[in-house]
Amino acid sequence: MNMHNPAHPGEILKELVLEPLELSITEAARHLGISRKTLSKVLNKRGAITPEMALRLEMAFGKPNATHWLRLQNAFDLWQTRQHSIDIQVIPFEVCHAGLLKA
């Protein structure tokens, strides 16, 4: 099931984790072991949740886990890419009745 315009995971991190805990960007970045600038980019939708960042979030906050953060990022990235799919040039394979590729 495809989502319609999923939220950037940085928005979710900000609204559902940092704000309820009343954490500043500086304080959260210090706990995550990253620069304030790096965290700010993620929170302001100019940076992505990388596998390393997802693991840092899991280690710092517990739940949701790293896999959850990566799924959120993947859903966001895929939705964004689909918005420009008309620009992607692909020649589809033809599939015959038996489900095999046709030459």
Rank of each mutant, 00 (worst) to 15 (best):
E52T: 04
A29S: 09
P51T: 00
G47D: 01
R30L: 14
E27L: 08
I34R: 09
R36E: 15
L13Q: 03
L18K: 02
L18P: 02
A48H: 07
K45Y: 07
G33M: 04
H4V: 07
V42F: 06
K41Q: 14
S24T: 11
L23M: 12
R36Q: 15
L39Q: 05
A7D: 08
I25A: 15
T26K: 11
I49D: 00
R46K: 11
L21I: 03
I25E: 15
L32A: 12
M3I: 09
T38D: 14
R30K: 15
T26Y: 06
P51M: 05
I49E: 00
V17T: 09
E22M: 14
L23N: 03
P51A: 05
S35V: 05
H4P: 07
V17L: 13
E27K: 08
R36S: 14
I34G: 11
E15G: 13
E27S: 13
V42Q: 02
E19G: 05
K37I: 13
P9D: 04
G33I: 01
T26S: 13
A29T: 01
T38C: 14
L16T: 03
L39H: 07
K45M: 12
R36C: 13
H8P: 02
P6Q: 01
E22P: 05
K37R: 14
I34C: 14
